[in-house]
C-alpha cells in the first residue's frame, strides 16, 4: 500500500492520462491473479529507504496524520493548526519530500458528491500547508469520498471519524 503511493506520486505529478500496462483483472483470471499482479507491480517499485524516521516517531507531532472536520465543514480547526504547520515546515525543510492528502466524507448521500466533499477537506489542508511554506508541487490533494471509511458504523461517532483528511508521505 505504502509502496504503491510512491509509484503513484511519481506518475501522478506528471499527470499522465494513459494506462494500458497496469494489471487488469478480468472475469477469467479473477481468482488470485489480480492480487498477484498488483503485488508484483508493487515489489518492482522502489520503496522509500530514505523515509525519515522522524515521520513515524510517536513522540513527534509529525507522526500525527489525521485532521478532523466538523459536520458540513471544510475549515481546518484551530486544534489541528500546529499539526498542519509542522508538516508544512517539514516539507519546506525537505524539498524532496512529497505528500498525498486524502480527504474523506461520511456515508450519507451521493457517492460522487461525497467524493467532492472529501476533496474540499483535502484541499483545505493543502491550502493551509502551502500558506505555511510547503510547495504545491510537493502536495497532491485527492479524495476517497465515502469509499474507504475508517469507522464502518452507521452512527454519528463513525461519521465524525470519517470526516477527515489523512497525510501520507511518499514511501509510506
Amino acid at each position: 500500500m505504502k509502496k504503491v503511493m510512491s509509484v503513484l506520486l511519481i506518475g501522478l505529478l506528471s499527470a499522465c492520462a494513459s494506462d494500458t500496462t497496469k494489471p487488469t483483472a478480468t472475469a477469467e483470471d479473477r481468482s488470485a491473479a489480480p492480487a498477484a499482479a498488483a503485488s508484483a507491480a508493487v515489489t518492482s517499485a522502489v520503496t522509500n529507504p530514505n523515509l525519515n524516521p522522524i515521520l513515524t516517531d510517536p513522540k513527534n507531532i509529525l507522526s500525527k496524520r489525521s485532521v478532523y472536520f466538523d459536520y458540513d465543514s471544510y475549515v481546518v480547526k484551530n486544534e489541528y493548526r500546529s499539526l498542519v504547520q509542522a508538516h508544512a515546515q517539514y516539507l519546506r525543510d525537505n524539498a524532496g519530500a512529497r505528500v498525498m492528502l486524502q480527504g474523506n466524507a461520511d456515508e450519507r448521500g451521493s457517492r460522487e458528491y461525497n467524493l467532492a466533499l472529501g476533496q474540499k477537506r483535502a484541499d483545505s489542508v493543502r491550502s493551509a500547508m502551502t500558506l505555511s511554506g510547503a510547495k504545491e508541487s510537493q502536495i497532491e490533494a485527492v479524495s476517497l469520498g465515502e469509499e474507504k471509511p475508517r469507522a464502518t458504523g452507521h452512527d454519528e461517532a463513525s461519521w465524525a471519524e470519517n470526516r477527515r483528511t489523512d497525510i501520507r508521505y511518499q514511501g509510506e
Binding site: 506518475g11 501522478l12 505529478l13 499527470a15 499522465c16 492520462a17 494513459s18 494506462d19 494500458t20 497496469k22 487488469t24 478480468t26 472475469a27 460522487e112 467524493l115 476533496q119 497532491e140 490533494a141 485527492v142 479524495s143
Partner: peptide, 16 residues
C-alpha cells in the same frame, strides 16, 4: 476485449 485505459488520471481526483 476487457482492454482498458485510464482516460483521466490527472493530479488530484478524477471522477464522475
Amino acid at each position: 476485449t476487457r482492454a482498458r485505459k485510464a482516460v483521466a488520471n490527472f493530479k488530484g481526483s478524477n471522477s464522475a
